[in-house]
Simulated scan of single mutants.
Amino acid sequence: MRTGVYLAHPRPGSFNHAVFGAVVEELRGRGADVVAHDLCAEGFDPSLTARETGTVEVASPAHDPQVASHRAEVADLDALVFIHPNWWGMPPAVLTGWVQRVLAPGVAYKLGAAEGEPAGLLKATRALVLNTSDTPADREEREFGDPLHNVWAACVLPYVGIREVRRIVFRTVTDSSGEERAAWLEEARRHAASLLGQEALDR
């Protein structure tokens, strides 16, 4: 199983980096073929260019070699994992830009037979989103709803053909203890293993 794991956090040593390392290690330890990207460390440019804005049927060429490489790679994945903090109810800019430049029309989706309905083009059928947050769950639900759930499970991933979306939130991170973080890392490992199927969990 070929899995792409994408980290969006600019600070080395963050808890997001620890989650990223645990997930990659778990998947590789279970025999998965993992392509791992620390988008900030790799210097991924999130700025969508005018030349990349095409139609929903035909992809505009990616003149940036890094974007072209990511587009080719994501088309061959069986599952995707996204790891990022909740910043203002949004993913960090580098990941938002990755979505816009890589999951492009004509690459990741096109319009289907029904007018306005998307048809996903990706091979991947499942995704895992691991978020960190400093907003308590009851306050977020009361004041904001769950904007990141809407981003991933309603707006982005179903559009490209991914119907099985699991999202886990670790909170609140800033005041968490070492024991809590260790437990969260184990939880992240379990959810990563579940991408490979129940047999992976039983091994």
Score class of each variant (00 low, 15 high):
Val81Ser: 06
Arg51Ala: 14
Gly4Glu: 05
Trp98Cys: 01
His191Phe: 06
Val74Pro: 02
Ala75Asn: 14
Pro92Lys: 03
Gly161Tyr: 00
His149Asn: 09
Ala114Asn: 11
Ala182Tyr: 08
Arg101Lys: 12
Leu95Ile: 08
Arg163Met: 03
Leu77Gln: 12
Ala75Trp: 12
His63Val: 10
Asn131Ser: 10
Thr53Ser: 09
Glu179Asp: 15
Ala50Asp: 13
Asp38Leu: 07
His149Arg: 13
Val81Asp: 03
Gly197Trp: 11
Ser47Lys: 11
Phe44Gly: 01
Ala137Asn: 00
Val67Tyr: 03
Val169Cys: 04
Tyr159Val: 13
Arg142Ser: 12
His149Phe: 09
Ala200His: 09
Thr49Cys: 06
Val151Leu: 07
Ala36His: 02
Thr172Asn: 13
Phe170Gln: 08
Gln66Ala: 15
Gly178Lys: 15
Gly112Tyr: 12
Val160Thr: 04
Phe144Ser: 13
Glu179Gln: 15
Thr53Met: 13
Gly197Pro: 09
Gly4Gln: 02
Pro158Lys: 03
Ser194Gln: 09
Arg181Asn: 06
Ser14Pro: 09
Leu128Ile: 09
Gly106Gln: 11
Ala127Asn: 04
Pro158Ser: 07
Val5Arg: 01
Pro158Phe: 01
Tyr109Gly: 07
Thr174Ile: 15
Ala93Gly: 12
Val94Met: 07
Glu187Phe: 04
Val102Gln: 06
Thr53Leu: 13
Glu57Val: 06
Ala119Phe: 12
Pro158Ile: 02
Leu157Phe: 02
Gln66Ser: 11
Tyr109Asp: 07
Arg101Gln: 08
Asp76Phe: 08
Leu148Cys: 05
His63Asp: 14
Glu141Thr: 12
Pro158Thr: 03
Leu128Tyr: 05
Val102His: 05
Glu115Tyr: 14
Glu25Met: 10
Asp64Phe: 05
Thr172Arg: 14
Ala137Pro: 02
Pro92His: 03
Leu122Glu: 05
Asn86Arg: 03
Val35Cys: 10
Cys155Ala: 13
Val23Pro: 03
Thr172Pro: 12
Val58Asp: 04
Ala193Ile: 10
Gly29Asn: 11
Asp38Gly: 05
Leu27Asp: 07
His84Leu: 03
Trp184Cys: 09
Leu185Glu: 05
Leu195Val: 02
Val81Lys: 04
Ala114Cys: 10
Glu199Trp: 15
Cys155Lys: 04
Thr49His: 06
Arg101Gly: 04
Thr174Ser: 15
Thr49Leu: 15
Glu42Met: 05
Gly13Val: 00
Ala183His: 10
His63Tyr: 11
Ser69Ile: 00
Ser14Asp: 10
Pro105Leu: 12
Ala68Val: 00
Arg126Leu: 00
Val5Tyr: 04
Pro105Ala: 12
Arg163His: 05
Asp45Gln: 04
Glu141Asn: 06
Val24Leu: 02
His149Glu: 12
Leu7Val: 01
Pro65Ile: 07
Gly178Asp: 15
